[in-house]
Nucleic acid binder design. Sequence first.
DNA 1: CTGAAAGCGCTTACAG
DNA 2: CTGAAAGCGCTTACAG
Lengths: 336, 336
Amino acid sequence: MAARITIAEIAARAGVSAPTVSRVLNQRGDVAADTRERVEHLLAEHGYRRRGAPAPRPWTLIDLVFDDIDSPWALEVLRGVEDEAHGLGAGTVVSAVHGRAAERRRWLDNVRGRESGGAVLVTTGLDAALRAELQELRIPVVVVDPAGGADLGLPTVGATDWAGGRAATQHLLDLGHTRIAHVAGRPDLWCSRARLDGYRAALDAAGVDLDRDLVATGAFDYRSGFEVTSRWLADGAAPTAVFAASDQMALGVYEALRQTGRRVPDDVSVVGFDDLQEAQWSSPPLTTVRQPLDQMGRLAVRTLRRITDGEDVASPRVELATELVVRASTAPPRTA
Amino acid sequence: MAARITIAEIAARAGVSAPTVSRVLNQRGDVAADTRERVEHLLAEHGYRRRGAPAPRPWTLIDLVFDDIDSPWALEVLRGVEDEAHGLGAGTVVSAVHGRAAERRRWLDNVRGRESGGAVLVTTGLDAALRAELQELRIPVVVVDPAGGADLGLPTVGATDWAGGRAATQHLLDLGHTRIAHVAGRPDLWCSRARLDGYRAALDAAGVDLDRDLVATGAFDYRSGFEVTSRWLADGAAPTAVFAASDQMALGVYEALRQTGRRVPDDVSVVGFDDLQEAQWSSPPLTTVRQPLDQMGRLAVRTLRRITDGEDVASPRVELATELVVRASTAPPRTA
DNA sequence: CTGAAAGCGCTTACAG
DNA sequence: CTGAAAGCGCTTACAG
């Protein structure tokens, strides 16, 4: 291995004495700003490390960052990330930044105080500022199912949302439904748009006209699924099937139907999206589009590892396949 | 602060020269076994640190260890732990050891390669061997809702399981039920026994005879709730209410009732235990006994912190209060 | 704000 | 397997 660079060598390059470099290293105040900057730059450039300090063991830890840990969604990603990292001998540091700048800063401060082999971001609040700060920390970053929008040039892992939306809708069409409602997800996320477009594409291909009254926007959560469906029922929109863009919204749909005395799937069929564990545990078990969240987490970790190893990460965005999982919440419409 | 102990001082105490101590420190082979042992002991005793190495920042990280991350249960604990630790400036390293010795060893190896401010264990596989290894690492340990059994002398955080079991049963009695079944939890965990005893105590106090056919043992998971209930219904046991020792089992109860055409709560009332988020999202929303899992996680972190700060941890076991949360899955029995 | 000199802590190369 | 001596890397105390 290359001999470690010493303070004396840095001093020579910077045209100062060794004590001056030492002062910069030890954060003493009595150094001219421009001298300090020059020295710090050289220190960073040559990867200076104090003599006693052992070279930091790489990949002792990786970071997994969520906006919030309150969704079962997060659990599935965590399980994949933890297991893959564990297999590589790394621990997984989990953080929730709640989309707040102060929390984000606190996380960054924490990372600075230790080593991190890389960060898997599962956050919709990814902007250029955060990107710059991460770059400064020099740790690899991979994004799981991001808001998209601005292409930040980071490797991302997603799922085939459009194909999933199409498959869910096609399943309902195949059962004989034509009045198929859609509860879309948060409009600021690309994945919502892709699922909606898949829904439309399936209807188009089947020659079924889109009824705009049967498309409403939710926020991916239980409450919005409940509210949107309650409104439809109150307005007499009467869909025979509902495709919700998340399992949690689908469970809200269930409850709205139950409260009005309707049965799933006898009166209305319901399809979700995600295949959280909740989908198996609902009554009836939910037909849904499986998004391999754990696999997405695993792939994100492997990608971090490949970046660390200096391999080329071929594609900036990888989409893992979604898959329709048919359970007991879908059936032919009553009138068929 | 006390001046750092030097190699020279250790050497003097050990009756050897400084170079010998240096050799021990750098893992060189050419040191007599007894000399090495004597020196290593002194090194550890005086907390020797190399000159360059900055004193490790305490509380940069804490550890949270599960058997498995697959339960929503884990998510609630994680949320509390992460938030409390984050507030104290610490990151949370999450590990799943799957009850396997090899995974446990891997985790311990990982901890050895970094600093840890302490470990919160949410594991049923806590034995004397693990206890000894943790002691060697010299990090504080707190256990959340442990299997109990052997008292390992570690601070633990639990919930008032007995009171919770009693409250759930009393609620059903108050509604007029007398044929109240109980799906108990894993018999190897004390919390299961406590909930069962609470159930019995409530029946006793109300003068209702316990029907042994209406008590069955589950494994806390969805499947066992489903199976136990299906068996009851097939056997004609016909309870008018079921108290399940976990929310996940309660959801299994729901499904068994649905598959036999019974409605909750019209035909059978159901009460769970935990108050996972799933309890709010089920149809109908589940009446359950809230166990403040997030608060238990928070308290565990604060306890670690107090141990670190040298404060006395007064009680070896703290139980946080459970609370009955009445939703829509309970109603008076039909015949009442 | 900076450097020459002294000195501390640790390691290395050599000798036995 | 161990130590006396030399020397390296870094910091400290002083001077300007």
